[in-house]
Amino acid sequence: MKSIIAVFTVLTAIIAIWYIACVPMNIKGVLDGAERAGIEVVPETARERRDMSEIGLVISNRFAIDETWSQDRPRLPAPHQVAVELWETTVEKKITSKRSLIYHGQVTLSATLLGFAIGTGLGILLAVGIVHSRVMDMSVMPWAIVSQTIPIIALAPMIIVVLYSVGVQGLLPKAIISAYLSFFPVVVGMVKGLRSPDHMQLDLLKTYSASTAQGFWKLRLPSSLPYLFASLKIGIAASLVGAIVGELPTGAVAGLGARLLAGSYYGQTVQIWSALFAAAILAAALVAALGLIERLLLGRMGVKT
């Protein structure tokens, strides 16, 4: 309970700071508009105002403060503007509409999920290979770790163009980038998990004369699940980032990344912010869904969390 109050207080403080920050961020735009509308502004021309500090402008033009929260294309939109835009583009628009965030969200989501499934599947397979083969362990594992330090996302534009030139387009190129990003966290976490049973447990199975396969299904796999879920949560967040970035360099027309890009071309800040929040909500929902599956699955297995 105490934590909830604390989180709530911090959230309120963040929103308050956001509102306050809107005033100096947007004041110049508001004053330019007011001058054009014939309202008296204190330094009269835009050139004089440019050299003044934002705070000074706010103090000498206090009438304009209200306006800074309701501009059309503000530098920093106020929280309620973003909330209204989110509401209008999700609930009030038809899902099939090109302006509906749900439409764009599901484009990104399907690429994310497809890529996540590919990346996780391959990652688990590779981890099983690494655990059972010394050669693979010694030759592949160092590269898997090194590759974590490389900004893989730099490959994204190339993957898309290359796949396009061999005739693959649509969902798959984005999904491959997603898969690539979620692949390595899963490999590293799964290897750790499959190795987590200690010698006593492995020896016990040996005294039961269990085969390698039995040891895998009855001991290694169940004990790897907590590790697997920890890396799945990292992996799905990475997948979403991959899908969004995959939409940037090709000028995609649909998807949250495309919304971000279009917003930044046309200066539609409210649109950028609402796409950003939609992406955040999506990420949070995906991680929460994985957390729920983890709780149910591990609960049935009797793991205490």
Binding site: V7, V10, L11, I14, R75, K233, A237, L240, V241, I244, V245, L256, L260, L261, G263, S264, G267, T269, I272, W273, A275, L276, A279, A280, A283, A284, V287
Partner: peptide
């Protein structure tokens, strides 16, 4: 809140900050 934000696609703020 920090834990939550650390999992979000923060690269998305790039267009805003570039602006």
């Amino acid at each position: 809140i920090g834990n939550f934000v650390a999992a979000l696609p923060i690269v998305g703020t790039a267009p805003i900050l570039v602006m």
